[in-house]
């Protein structure tokens, strides 16, 4: 309950900060091109204020939140998956799409699976990853002839 209140306050502050950031940028605009952005930014900041006021003064907090089932969230896994995605996407243009994606598929599926690492447990993810990459290669490069991000490998 209290947590949600804090969360809303943080959201409203972020909203106000974004409004401010956008507002500074409207300075270079010339009329009539500045009206629409200014109105939109204005509404956004008003909504931020409404949320802030509600978060501070509204009493019936968290009434509905109790209905939700507690989430089975593993914080380590959350950050791991986000950094994994970041690393993957930044590597794609360097190493090439197919190689990076293949490595990403293998590493993620191994780390998400709770089995212990052994030679046997590696076979399945590697096979699946190669099959997926082969299917993608067939669809995108051979059949559709759509360019994919290239790098030092393919």
């Amino acid at each position: 309950m209290q947590k949600e209140r804090v969360q809303d306050i943080v959201v409203s502050i972020i909203v106000l900060a974004i409004s401010f950031l956008f507002y500074i940028n409207t300075k270079t605009l010339t009329p009539p091109a500045d009206i629409f952005p200014k109105v939109v930014i204005g509404i956004f900041s008003i909504l931020g204020v409404i949320l802030l006021v509600k978060a501070i003064f509204y009493r019936k907090y968290g009434e509905e939140a109790d209905e939700e089932t507690p989430e089975k969230v593993d914080m380590k896994r959350r950050w791991f998956s986000i950094t994994g995605l970041l690393a993957y996407i930044f590597l794609v243009p360097i190493l090439g799409f197919y190689v990076t994606s293949g490595i990403y598929l293998v590493l993620v599926s191994i780390s998400l699976n709770d089995e212990k690492i052994s030679v046997k447990s590696l076979v399945k993810p590697i096979t699946i990853a190669s099959l997926v990459m082969l299917a993608l290669y067939g669809t995108f490069t051979v059949f559709l002839r759509v360019p994919v991000p290239g790098g030092i490998f393919i």
Binding site: F80, A87, I94, I152
Partner: peptide, 23 residues
């Protein structure tokens, strides 16, 4: 989660190697 750290480190290594070969 030791596996995770291992994976992150290996990824970083790959990144550095690949950055060098881009020159």
């Amino acid at each position: 989660m030791k596996k995770a750290y291992f994976i992150v480190i290996s990824l970083i290594t790959v990144m550095i190697i690949s950055a060098c070969s881009q020159l």
